[in-house]
Computed example of a mutant assay.
Amino acid sequence: MGRIVIVAYRPKPGKSAELQALAKTHLSILKAEQLVTDRDSILMRAEDGTVVEVFEWRSREDIDRAHNNPVIQQMWRDYAEVCDYIPIAQVPEASGLFSEFAPL
Rank of each mutant, 00 (worst) to 15 (best):
I29W: 02
I29R: 11
I29S: 03
L30Q: 05
K31A: 10
K31W: 06
K31D: 00
K31Y: 01
A32C: 04
E33M: 05
E33C: 13
Q34C: 10
Q34H: 13
L35N: 00
V36Y: 01
D38E: 14
D38L: 06
D40E: 13
D40G: 11
D40A: 13
S41W: 07
S41G: 09
S41M: 13
S41T: 09
L43T: 10
M44E: 06
R45A: 14
R45P: 01
D48R: 10
D48Q: 05
D48G: 02
G49W: 07
G49Q: 04
G49S: 08
V52I: 15
E53A: 15
V54A: 12
V54N: 02
V54L: 14
F55A: 03
F55W: 11
E56L: 06
W57R: 06
W57E: 02
R58Q: 12
R58K: 15
S59P: 03
S59C: 05
R60S: 13
E61R: 12
E61Q: 12
E61G: 13
D62I: 07
I63E: 09
D64P: 00
D64A: 15
R65Q: 13
A66N: 02
A66V: 03
H67Q: 14
H67K: 14
N68M: 06
N68T: 10
N68C: 06
N69W: 05
N69V: 10
N69G: 10
N69Q: 09
N69L: 04
N69C: 09
V71D: 01
V71A: 12
I72M: 13
I72T: 09
Q74K: 15
Q74I: 03
M75K: 10
W76I: 14
R77W: 08
R77N: 10
R77V: 14
R77F: 09
D78C: 04
Y79F: 15
A80Y: 05
E81F: 09
E81K: 15
V82Y: 04
V82D: 01
C83V: 09
C83T: 10
D84I: 04
D84M: 05
D84G: 09
Y85S: 14
Y85W: 09
I86T: 01
A89S: 14
A89K: 14
Q90C: 11
P92N: 01
P92L: 07
E93A: 15
A94H: 12
A94G: 06
